[in-house]
Write a protein that binds this DNA or RNA. Sequence first.
DNA 1: CTATATCCTCTACAATGTAGAATAAATAAG
DNA 2: CTTATTTATTCTACATTGTAGAGGATATAG
Lengths: 116, 116
Amino acid sequence: MRKEKNLGEFEIIVLAALIRLGTDAYGVSIRQEIETRTGRSVSVGALYSTLSRLEEKNYVASRMGAATAERGGRAKRHYLIKAEGEAQLEKSVFMLGKMLKGIKAWPETLKNLACL
Amino acid sequence: MRKEKNLGEFEIIVLAALIRLGTDAYGVSIRQEIETRTGRSVSVGALYSTLSRLEEKNYVASRMGAATAERGGRAKRHYLIKAEGEAQLEKSVFMLGKMLKGIKAWPETLKNLACL
DNA sequence: CTATATCCTCTACAATGTAGAATAAATAAG
DNA sequence: CTTATTTATTCTACATTGTAGAGGATATAG
């Protein structure tokens, strides 16, 4: 069994996006979700290689879907976070929360972490 | 001017520790702060190389202090987060917050795994 | 001086982050 | 049907971060 390692920053973001998107998660939508929500640009390669690594770690599952009847509507690969992935994400977020909790200076920013 | 890059997960943790410790921050106390607060073990090398990289990026400043009159009380290197570091940390935490905000069901397992 | 404690530096390598070209597969146009 | 265009994923290559631990420096105690 692979030793449990801490998630990287981008891995956290990707896993969070998977939770947000639920069954609608595939390459393009995930990328879109992250970009619009964080304002940060994400290259295709960055996203897919991270997804692939998360899958190797058994944090994420994927399956090929069917093509759709739109122009360029080739088959998508759908991604879903697994229980192990959620658990690990929770652990990482918990750690960050422990470190960040109580640091004043950020009025709005920390409010977003109130879910911890 | 170095391009602004996103902070890594551990970098976030270290910067947060620096804020928490204020003027008491030096190698051992920083390590202690992170370990007790997160329950995660931190190797000496991991910490110092991260601090050193944060300093190169102008996010942190350090200076050598004086020795103290305790057994083994050799001089400590004191670290202090800089304004640039705080700004960058806030940016990273803001992004994470945006992605994590509103995710409720942490402990819950996704039941949709069957559809894979 | 030798022992022991505290603390930092250095080296080496593993894992994660990132970009963009290449490729694949679908419909639309002519 | 052949080419253009659109949507999507795969692949390759390299940069940055993460991590461990040996080793060296410097302090007091005895």
